[in-house]
Design a protein around this nucleic acid. Structure first.
Lengths: 348, 348
DNA sequence: TGTTAGCACTCTATTGTGTTGAGTGCTAAT
DNA sequence: ATTAGCACTCAACACAATAGAGTGCTAACA
């Protein structure tokens, strides 16, 4: 028994209906709404086959069917049609990005907000990853006799800071000199490429004083640390959106979901890995976490000046409106990439 | 009818029981567990009076009673006994603050985590507020011809940054000079005290070039902006803790709660205002938001080198274990104040 | 041979009906 | 002032009856 065109059409009709209603759909409904002009009995026969193919599932013997994970995968890969935003929605997006945006933080937050409101699912955005950015300047700012603040600025205008220990014998003037030396030697390198091997040069340039060596070591540690634990912010919004879906009307299911969401590391790593791809779609068990097994996650990247910087995504029930979500992600991705580029690089 | 000692004891017994069980408590239970050696009938009479005084409420005619908001207020003000942590709990706290703490971010996150796990309510922590900190250094770092990054470091080692526009004609060297001038003139001032009025001095010091004026204006704008919208991070943890309480076993109640929590501004402003006080306790409607009317919020501050910097709190049902929460907040407050001070100021 | 009408059967969801038990409120006795 | 006793209230639970949506199968039809 093969998956002919008619079966696909029926499957599509079922998926579309189920995405809308979350109610197992029966043969009569398909017969009426699929536009195929077939009786419910015929549809029933076909649905039986689809069940055998593992594409439909029944909650219990005498109920309608709902799509399986496999079906959603097939739908996403082959059936789904591209949808686009209404002018109102596009307007809504640009409205929300035109005002009171001051810095990356703002962009991230607004993105999370808009994404969740437009999709009515939960949104998640990670802030730009720095380790591929180029170093622009290093500045060591004394705080106390023995502590200083290390500030590293990148070419895309992003900043990271850390506290380092310094020998008490070093003067502010020297710290400035060291900062300048470091900036001169290291500017233009990618943050994740700065390693111990660059350090001897700097050290030599400074005149090889013992105290300097110590500072440089601390600094290298700090940089390495920063590129290993990227300390990215994960911004989420719209958890309560999810609770209004019938799949989470049971409090136990809701708790399960929230628990999984609160342990941000799963979501975090999905988004971090997604940076490589323009889009990713993970359906149900494709997300490794069993607690999120009845969810799907769709992600997209955003960039600055063409370089992909971070990613964002949407988490919803497996019966999510994939096509719409993709359209929204595409649009928002473009918007914020433009804004970021403009904010940090373009003259305006 | 007055509120005599016996009534108070009965009320206390009821509150203690209700805090534990969340089940309306009947006269028989009080009679047995209060240690007053009174029959249930007597207790009933007293409970009737307490009801008239507005201290007890009944879900329906023939059920036990639960404390009113007024009763909790009275309990917190007059009845509650100080409780202290077990050695294990104290150990748990110091354990969690001894490892992998690198910067403020980490402290904030760990605090939120520990606070929620120990109390089993939801925790919330705001990151340090800068506007009372002293300025240490200003550095303007060029990004493109027309954009530069403004980095402001404070005496307690905290950093804020913003992108500002600069006239294309200004060289890197000049930017450095301006940075130094600014640092010299403004270092030691409190961030929220830096206003336009300081700027003419700086301007004069620089030689009154037209382009400089523009930069200085932008910078003042930026600083003012930063102290007005403090851009504090709000870290929360343990929402799903709340969902395991019977008061939120109804999905509608849970959604209501989550919605209120997601609109962080309410919580945010409560915490921000709480910075003035060592502790605050808000019970039910004392939190202004009607959606949080069956919750209570307890807050405490943390400090660095004795200066209160930010605040943290716990959100739970009105029948929260106030005494325990206060003990935990006190202990954690001390711990993180020590850690922050050590991290940024002490030699170690 | 593919399609359809008809029908028995299954299972959920809803509604209604006792029944139980905790707890109050009142009265009369101590 | 306190307590025992008792009628009454109300939510919670269990159980049965009913309705309705939907399947699976068979036989008839084009």
């Amino acid at each position: 028994m093969s998956l002919d065109l008619r079966k696909l059409k029926i499957l599509e009709a079922i998926i579309n209906d189920y995405i809308m209603t979350a109610v197992p759909v029966g043969s009569r409904t398909v017969s009426k709404r699929s536009g195929l002009n077939l009786s419910s009995a015929t549809i029933r026969n076909e649905m039986f086959d689809l069940k055998e193919l593992g594409l439909l599932e029944q909650p219990h013997t005498s109920s309608g069917s709902m799509p399986s994970e496999k079906a959603y995968r097939l739908y996403v890969n082959r059936l789904m049609r591209k949808s686009s935003l209404t002018p109102e929605e596009a307007e809504y997006i640009s409205q929300h990005f035109s005002t009171k945006i001051d810095d990356v933080e703002d962009v991230i937050k607004q993105t999370a907000l808009v994404l969740s409101q437009l999709t009515s699912y939960m949104s998640m955005v990670i802030s730009p990853q720095l380790y591929e950015a180029e170093l622009r300047r290093i500045q060591i700012i004394p705080i106390t006799d023995e502590k200083a603040l290390l500030v590293v600025a990148s070419d895309v205008g992003l900043v990271r800071d850390a506290v380092i220990r310094i020998p008490a014998s070093i003067s502010d003037y020297e710290l400035n000199r060291i900062s300048e030396m470091l900036t001169n030697s290291l500017a233009g390198m990618k943050l994740n490429e700065i390693s111990d091997s660059c350090m001897p040069d700097v050290f030599k340039g400074l005149g090889e004083r013992r105290e300097y060596l110590e500072i440089i070591k601390r600094l290298a540690d700090s940089l390495r640390n920063a590129s290993r634990n990227p300390k990215q912010e994960l911004e989420t919004y719209g958890v309560m959106n999810l609770l209004s879906f019938p799949e989470y009307s049971d409090i136990e299911a809701a708790r399960n979901l929230l628990e999984a969401i609160e342990h941000t590391d799963v979501i975090y790593s999905i988004l971090a890995n997604a940076k490589e791809f323009e889009f990713t779609i993970k359906i149900g068990s494709e997300i490794e976490d069993p607690k999120l097994s009845n969810c799907s996650i769709v992600t997209a990247t955003y960039s600055i000046d063409g370089k992909p910087l971070g990613s964002m995504g949407v988490l919803g029930p497996t019966r999510m409106n994939y096509s719409r979500v993709l359209a929204i992600l595409t649009h928002i991705g473009k918007s914020i990439s433009e804004i970021l580029t403009q904010m940090y690089l373009d003259a305006d």
